[in-house]
Computed example of a mutant assay.
Amino acid sequence: MAEDWLADVRKYVADADETVVAAIVKYLGIALRNRDSSLVSFSDKKETDRVRENFLKKKLGLTDDDATLDAAIAGVGERMKEDRTKNRVTVYYLLARHFGLLNIFGGVAGAAGAAGAAAGLAAAGAAGGDADKDEEETAPVAPLAAAGLGAGAAAGGAASGSPAAASPTAVPPPSAAPAAPPPPASTAPQAVYSSGDDDEKAGGGMGWLGWLLLALILAALLFFGLRYCSKQEAAVAPATDEAAVSETVAPADSAATPTTTAAIPEGAGVVAADREGKPMLTVYFDTGKSEVSNDLSTAAAAVKTYLDANPAATLAVSGYNDPTGNAAANAELSKNRARSVKAALEKLGFAPERVVLEKPAETTTSGTDNSAARRVEVTVKG
């Protein structure tokens, strides 16, 4: 799907960093190939929860409480409410900029954006919950207070010299007291330094204040340095493996769970793993669909190598579905998905007699994310 992601981001941030946008596009990977998964539905609580858990917590490494993170997501949704297509790339750019963490994607560390986020979140209430999309019930999201993203945008504009610097919503620098404790993570070092400078001029002869200011700045720099390092170590996977947005765990059923954990794509995709020392494939599908992702040709290489080295081995192909919708239709869909995978494997050179359709005891998988339930498992037998 051809899409000018940078142009879409620049509808909201005129000087958006092209390098950062490209890094976010690479992070999202195959999620952008599917129209549905390339957009964010702010009325779907499961979707916004996924953004909070997988992007804000896992990728950005944020440790704020859920209410604070939900408020930031709701604020982006409120800002984009007039946009019919809420592109996931734009949403993630605005969230990373809001928390001053564009540097994770190769941008400049956003201290001004972090200061705006702190002021906005202090005035914002927690976002309201949404009904589950699978039950087709939606409720409006409580928008983040206008001070939230507006203040962050104004602070970011002041740092870049854009017209937003003159906006009345810009956050004024806090005044520092001589005995003030080190600033919290959301306070920008630049704001602390500016306030201390004013006190130095007004205090006349209080030379010790300069040393106190220097100590505070050094403490803040040390804090941000340690936090940045911890975020790098906490990254879920390298950029080349971040093929999807969702990193939810595999189904709870131990008989259907691979021994190695891999990211589950939203919609169609293929994940290669090992089970009991043998290669296996898990092919995921879009809702209600049985078309096999083109990723199968690459992912199946290890399975082909194993079969070539073990002439007696065969492949068992088993289809599954999520619990939503009509049970009879779901059962037929599971069967069609398994048949589609068998046909695709045969096109890749697998001998038909070595690819066997095997109906599992339970084709419907519940108690897990629906994207993980819509799958076909290809396992080695013998």
Rank of each mutant, 00 (worst) to 15 (best):
Y228W: 05
A234G: 12
G125W: 10
A111I: 03
G210Y: 01
A235R: 05
P184V: 05
A123S: 10
L222G: 15
G152S: 15
S162L: 10
S162E: 13
L216A: 04
V141H: 00
A154Y: 10
A177M: 13
A114D: 14
P173S: 14
G125K: 13
A220I: 02
A158G: 02
L218S: 09
A220F: 00
A170M: 14
G106N: 08
E136I: 11
A180Q: 15
E135P: 00
L218A: 12
D130P: 04
L222V: 06
A164I: 03
D198S: 06
A154W: 14
A191C: 06
R227F: 06
S160K: 10
G125Y: 08
P173N: 09
L209R: 05
P181F: 06
L221W: 06
S186T: 09
A112T: 03
S230C: 04
Y228A: 10
G110T: 03
S230Y: 14
V236R: 07
L222N: 10
P183Q: 08
Q190R: 07
P178I: 11
A145F: 08
T169P: 01
P168N: 03
D199Q: 09
A158S: 02
A131R: 05
A159Q: 10
P184T: 05
F223D: 00
D197L: 11
K133F: 11
A111N: 12
G106F: 02
A131Y: 13
S195I: 08
A118Q: 12
G207W: 12
A166S: 13
P183Y: 10
A164P: 02
L212S: 05
A164M: 09
K133M: 12
T169C: 05
S186P: 06
A131V: 08
G129D: 14
A112K: 00
F105P: 06
